[in-house]
Amino acid sequence: MPAPTQPVSPGPWRQAAGKLARTPSAMVALGVLVAVMVACLLAPVYAHDVARTNPFQSTVAGTIMLDGREVDIMQPDDNPLHLGLSPIGPTWCATYLLGADSQGRDVMARLLYGGRNSLVISAAAAVLCLLLAATVGVVAGFFGGIVDTVLSRLMDIMWAVPVYLFAISLSIVMVSQQMRLGPFVLRADSLLVPVLIIALVYVPYAARPIRGRVMALRQAEFVTAARCLGVPGWRIMLHDIVPNVMTTLVTLGPLLMALALLAESALSFLSLGVQAPQPSWGTIIQDGEGLIYTRPMVAVAPGLAIVTVVLALNILGDGLRDALDVRDGGRRS
């Protein structure tokens, strides 16, 4: 049944969008997210036209012109503990804006390209996870009984393994060699590997609230009414339950993406997510770990990027939850 459109009072989604638009923090967060995404999309522009490099080009022996002077990219170390060379620090100029990493690669270029990978992986993982969790939650909540028991137990079991350990276990298995799933070959360095892993480990986290919502809806009077009218179960599920669960899904979306981004960076930091030489914010932090005392910017910059995006996602998620919360919209007694 299509929702009747009333000119007087806008639909719940419209209303929520309006409420969200009136929340300044959520709008700022949205603005920041869009800005970061645009910046990452423009990564090739920056790399080709501004920095004249690419994220993989390592220039160990090169020099650049800085204030009319020729400066080595790999400079003699000023720290007595390291006898080797350390990369150039932030120049705050077009090239090597944030300096170079230990292989002489432009950190800014890698940051932008890495952002693409990190954002794509976390968004894809969040969407996939929501799809899986919604299936599990709706099926478990709607059918109840033995189906619910089995699925809930399965979720309990998965949730008993610490999330990061679970992700690490899956990664080490999938990263160590390529996998053959029927006709599909999953290469170890594919970006799909972290997506699948992160989506899978957070399914119990997302499925629980969805199941709760469905259980509550199943008791709701309009579902009972539909049942009494003899509406078949699948129809009730599709037309009455799923649209009402959408609010829960939309609210969970940004929060899951935030969690996925954190998980992706942690896996990449442990060399179990995005595989070298592909950049991601986590791998750049790992590259920077060895340089933390001499060239801290290599590790600090991607970390700041992660904090910014995750914070923006969390604020957005908070705003969405407040805007969509039905209970909150009612009058107070």
Binding site: A266, I285, G303, V307, I315
Partner: peptide, 18 residues
């Protein structure tokens, strides 16, 4: 609190070390 939730722990550790 929200900022606290948004910081990757390993990065915070690195910065703390720094």
């Amino acid at each position: 609190g929200l900022v606290g939730i948004s910081i990757p722990v390993f990065w915070l550790g690195e910065v703390a070390n720094l």
